[in-house]
């Protein structure tokens, strides 16, 4: 077999694949932002430095852990799962339910994340502990059609529509006091957002880099409060920065602006 055409194929793949990534990014940011939400450190956490990484990376906190304390399916119920294309013909308490739902593949869907809305208020009421430091970003709806989802949640300053992988499960909550599981119910579980860790361009990262490394905030970063200049670990009560977060045509988020939280 001739070597030159094969090397040309390898080179073409090595160039075209990154090019497609560039194009995807460009198409995401080409038009007007699909949504723009101003969030704080509570919603976009600094990923701890480590493994040789010395620059700040942010992670969207959408209250993943609350999924484990659910006592009922909430909005992500049987009807929603059926609408997303899952096979929901078995009852959650059927003996075969665990295997039946466990083998159903995860699906990519569009997810509405509501910032500081009724869902956040209801959660704070139900779980008052950590209410002042918990993220105010909560999943509130999902659909296979992004436009239909946006039509149901038209506030683009409060609701982000993003892509996520979700799955169906028959879930019984373990109660450590009674040492028993509650009767199982069928619910949808969000496995992850397709873009959950967000890289910030070097030009907008000075404040975050300083906070992540525990250094004093550089003067050019424009720190205005004691909390913002303190560095080190985040305060439980006072967020140290605010971020303008945008999503674009492909519903992938990016950071448009970072500033100290006043």
């Amino acid at each position: 077999m001739k070597r030159a055409p094969l090397l040309a194929i390898a080179a073409a793949v090595a160039v075209v694949a990154p090019l497609l990534v560039f194009l995807a990014s460009a198409s995401n940011r080409a038009a007007e932002p699909e949504a723009e939400v101003v969030v704080t450190e509570r919603e976009l956490r600094l990923v701890p430095l480590g493994e040789g990484r010395r620059w700040a990376v942010l992670r969207l906190d959408w209250n993943r852990d609350l999924q484990w304390s659910q006592k009922e399916p909430g909005w992500f119920d049987r009807a929603k799962l059926a609408a997303l294309g899952f096979d929901v013909r078995l009852a959650a308490d059927d003996l075969r339910a665990s295997g039946f739902y466990g083998w159903q593949p995860a699906r990519e869907v569009f997810l509405a994340l509501e910032f500081d809305g009724p869902a956040a208020a209801a959660t704070d009421l139900a779980y008052p502990k950590d209410a002042s430091s918990r993220s105010r970003l909560h999943p509130v709806d999902a659909a296979l059609d992004a436009r239909a989802l946006r039509a149901r949640h038209p506030d683009r300053q409060r609701v982000l529509v993003v892509r996520a992988a979700v799955t169906a499960e028959s879930y019984g909550r373990w109660d450590p006091e009674t040492r028993k599981s509650s009767p199982p119910f069928l619910r949808g579980r969000i496995q992850r957002l397709l873009v959950e860790e967000i890289q910030v361009p070097r030009g907008r990262r000075a404040l975050l880099d300083a906070l992540a490394s525990g250094e004093a905030v550089p003067a050019g970063a424009g720190a205005t409060s004691a909390a913002a200049t303190a560095g080190g670990k985040p305060s439980a009560e006072v967020p140290r920065y605010r971020v303008v977060l945008r999503t674009g045509g492909r519903l992938e988020p990016w950071v448009a602006e970072v500033s100290p939280h006043s």
């Binding site: 094969l6 390898a10 793949v13 990534v21 995807a24 990014s25 873009v195 890289q199 992938e252």
Partner: peptide, 19 residues
């Protein structure tokens, strides 16, 4: 670039290594 990489990238890796 905060882009979600789809599993089809596995085919690109297969093509590169295969070639």
């Amino acid at each position: 670039f905060n882009v979600a990489l789809p599993p089809v990238s596995l085919l690109a890796w297969a093509a590169f290594c295969g070639a």
